[in-house]
Amino acid sequence: MLDVNIKSKQFKSSEGAELDVLNLLQFVCEENSFTCIVGPSGCGKTTTLRCILGLDTDFDGTVSVDDTHSRHKMAAVFQEPRLLPWRTVEQNVQLALNDVAVSVNNATFHELFAELGLSDHISLYPNELSLGLARRVSLARAFAVNPSVLILDEPFVSLDNETAARLRRLLVKVWSARSCIALMVTHNIDEAIELADRILFFSGSPASVGHEHRISVPRAERSLEMVKVIRAEIDVLVAGG
């Protein structure tokens, strides 16, 4: 279980003025759940992820992970793939693991590459990959550490629709086969509807969770039409609130 309780988060501007970014932001992610955060740009979505990942510790509040499997690992898929350009695809993924894990999990590791369609690319350098492939490597790296919490920050932004759709299907496939809490930020509501069990709508300035919408339709049944229907429901809800 991921328990996020950020009472307040401020940024200091260069003139020293304090700007409230997050206020009384509270939500819980259950085991094996997929949560999407949607909100206007600049509303603090990425800041929230940074607080959860421990990259920004300058906030008032707590973030805790309760894990029955005693793995205390978080993994992240960043907006840009953040692969080391001087290491091959395979080395990039291996480096995320500790040395013991590399030797133990070699087989599962290649299984993961195969699942993500990367088997033919493992000896290439990131500069030789398209953005879509680089994003897949970034996904492979995150899943390879077998995390209890997987954080995704707009991982499919600036891809063409077809590539993004293929990557979403891959993400669902790989994620379903493993058990972890997924928390993803996106500005694309349709993408959120396709992937999530639950969507958190951030609103206000400073931001907090404005609405919460659970999606009970199984992922396999979320056709384009179904996404439109759910979208219409959400639009009514958001407009009404």
Partner: peptide
Amino acid sequence: PEFAEMARVFNFSRWKALRHIVLP
């Protein structure tokens, strides 16, 4: 800083970060 953050998320040791992120 992007690479340093990646290293923190994936728990790189100091030596690993030096060898694979800083020196290159």
